[in-house]
């Protein structure tokens, strides 16, 4: 084994350190989720912690720290595409004519009378 590869793959200490960090972050996110300290920021905070955890896994367990280049580009592209898929779908649903969304907690009371009201929906006002 050459000295160069030995250098590239650090010893087990690094893996254990990452593992401990991951356990600590898990404990943190559970504690925050249970106590509802973050309030309406609960989901963003939980997701931020998840992003930190996954970054650790990707960089050190999956060696993206050592093997950059095209590999990093591949992962980044995939993530950007997922983000845009989710983003544009949510944007569509959020900016629609309200009755054009499926009947939800927010729009059910707007459902007009007449035919085709979804089952179980008690229609109320005629015009949004």
């Amino acid at each position: 084994m050459s000295a160069e590869t030995e250098h590239k793959h650090a010893g087990p200490g690094r893996y254990v350190a990452v593992w401990i960090a991951l356990l600590l972050f898990t404990a943190l996110t559970v504690a925050l989720g249970r106590s509802h300290l973050a309030g309406s920021w609960g989901l963003p905070v939980a997701l931020a912690i998840a992003v930190v955890k996954s970054t650790l896994v990707v960089l050190f367990f999956m060696h993206l720290w050592d093997h950059g280049g095209a590999n990093r580009l591949v992962l980044a592209t995939a993530l950007v595409f997922v983000a845009l898929l989710i983003g544009l779908v949510l944007l569509d649903s959020a900016t629609r004519f309200p009755l054009a969304d499926p009947p939800t907690e927010a729009t059910m009371r707007l459902m007009p009378p007449g035919p085709g009201a979804p089952p179980g929906v008690e229609p109320a006002a005629a015009r949004p």
């Binding site: 004519f97 009755l99 054009a100 969304d101 499926p102 009947p103 459902m111 007009p112 007449g114 035919p115 085709g116 979804p118």
Partner: peptide, 28 residues
Amino acid sequence: LITSRDVIHSFYMPAFRLKQDAVPGRYA
């Protein structure tokens, strides 16, 4: 206000250059 009872239909009036899908469970 267009909806559908079963599957997706599309309400199309060529003379009015107008078309809107009828999606079940909601109004377009």
